[in-house]
Design a binder for these strands. Structure first.
Length: 430
RNA sequence: GGAGGGGUGGCCGAGCGGUUGAAGGCGCCGGUCUUGAAAACCGGAAUCCCGCAAGGGAUCGGGGGUUCGAAUCCCUCCCCCUCCGCCA
């Protein structure tokens, strides 16, 4: 959520910033509502001041043993007027809230303006391996090994699900463990285990609701009970852990890492990545979240990207870093770097991590503040999140980058301790 | 699921129709004392909204009601705790 004061004081700047993100047309409407609200508030507060004064006088009269029935009757009428006007104000405020909840975050000045074509490659690491044969896409590699099974997953659920068998399932677990160990032991993140079902308020706090409900799986609860949402990323529960709290500056930055499955409807993605396990309704992810002061949040973003990169480096997977343009960023982000891993089976880079600084956008919704060390009022923290990494896509990258001519797949050395020391996956005998 | 108890400021906790924006404690900030620190003592400080300001308004889990007036009474929802039952 954007800060209303900023919109009121610099409407042109906000409109310009939103040009490539949508929502410009809402600003004028917001300003009209805001002016209306302020006019009404001023008026009704004058009435309340009068009531408070009269109430005090009545109290004193009563103490003197009098019974000021005329004054009490007058106040009864005034009270009704106040109630009516308060309701109108509440109505205006609800309208403003609705508009604000649908406005995306403002991009940081360093973000290129435009759409996906304006994304900027920041750096590359690693050299894509040259194959003596035509590298296959991961689904072919995996099915030949008997570790990826899309048909049975479709039988159990539907398309965009997968079953991992044997060494495939083991590889998924090994990757998860490897990533968690790296981030907790070497990068200073605290491991957290969180609910996978959250309430609507939590979803709204990180920006998934109200605008993107069609992307979420929702539980069906008995009449009168509130539904839960399946998390599309651990960013949601991790970021909201300190919702409504005031943290101390010396506690910041908070660095959290959690492993969770992620559930996404992928509405609107029909026809995209239908083969393989690039785009699934359920996938595992190791997620990094930080809460930081505004002063350090952009340094924290850079180090978060490095933390995610380190996973790819140790797994010897070539990648590149891309700074997303304004129009390609997520709703809550002010600045986002994507990590794209090289997939030889597809002959292109694909997103495997996305690291964002959301500044105060989510903190304002969730009410996450901190008290500065120097005397002063509590301020909103900045929230950051990034994948460290998407586990399924990492598995894909290994299958494609480490496939051999005989159909086997080499295990990257860094992962072998997590795979009982085996150095390759051979076709299973079922 | 059944029966009780409870949600108050950064935290703990008193208040249970008007003098309570709210006692007390802890923590925090400033000062006295001290070589320095601690302790002790003195003083200070809630948040948000409207307003150029003076000032005003709102806020005691959320919403609604009673009343001239509600942290205090009533209704409702949410959450937490204890005991019983059931259960991975």
């Amino acid at each position: 959520m954007l800060d209303l004061k900023t919109i009121r004081e610099h409407p042109q700047d906000v409109e310009r910033a939103l040009e490539s993100r949508g929502g410009v047309e809402s600003i004028q409407r917001l300003l009209v509502l805001d002016a209306d609200r302020r006019r009404r508030v001023t008026a009704v507060e004058a009435l309340k001041a009068e009531r408070n004064k009269a109430t005090e006088e009545i109290a004193q009269a009563k103490r003197r043993g009098e019974n000021p029935t005329d004054e009490m009757a007058r106040m009864r009428k005034l009270g009704d007027e106040i109630k009516e006007e308060d309701q109108k104000i509440a109505e205006v405020e609800r309208a403003m809230e609705t508009v604000l909840l649908h406005l995306p975050n403002l991009p940081h000045p360093s973000v290129p303006v435009g759409g996906p074509d304006d994304n900027q490659e920041v750096r590359r690491w690693g050299t894509p391996r040259s194959f003596s044969f035509e590298p296959k896409p991961h689904w072919e590699v995996g099915e030949r090994l008997g570790i990826l099974d899309f048909e049975r997953a479709a039988k159990l659920a539907k398309s965009r699900f997968v079953v991992l068998w044997g060494a495939g399932a083991r590889l998924e677990r090994a990757l998860t463990q490897f990533m968690l160990d790296l981030h907790t032991r070497e990068h200073g993140y605290r491991e957290v285990w969180v609910p996978h079902l959250v309430n609507a308020e939590t979803m709204a706090n990180t920006g998934q609701l109200p605008k993107f409900e069609e992307q979420l799986f929702k539980t069906l609860e008995p009449e009168g009970e509130r539904a839960f949402y399946l998390i599309p990323t651990a960013e949601v529960p991790l970021t909201c852990l300190h919702g409504g709290e005031i943290l101390k500056e010396h506690e910041l930055p908070k660095r959290y890492v959690a492993f969770t499955p992620c559930y996404r409807r992928e509405a609107g993605a029909a026809g995209q990545d239908t083969r393989g396990m690039i785009r699934q309704h359920q996938f595992d992810k190791v997620e990094l979240v930080k809460l930081a002061t505004p002063r350090t949040s952009y340094d924290e973003l850079e180090s978060m990207v490095k933390n995610a990169e380190e996973v790819l480096k140790r797994l010897e997977l070539p990648y590149r870093i891309v700074l997303l343009a304004t129009g390609d960023m997520g709703f809550a982000a002010a600045k986002t770097y994507d990590l794209e891993v090289w997939l030889p089976g597809q002959g292109k880079h694909r997103e495997i991590s996305s690291c964002s600084n959301c500044e105060a956008f989510q903190a304002r919704r969730a009410g996450i503040r901190y008290r500065p060390a120097a005397p002063g009022k509590a301020e909103f923290v900045h929230t950051l999140n990034g994948s460290g990494l998407a586990v399924g896509r990492t598995l894909i990258a290994i299958l494609e980058n480490f496939q051999e001519a005989d159909g086997s797949v080499t295990i990257p050395p860094a992962l072998r301790p997590y795979m009982d020391g085996i150095d390759r996956i051979l076709p299973a005998s079922v």
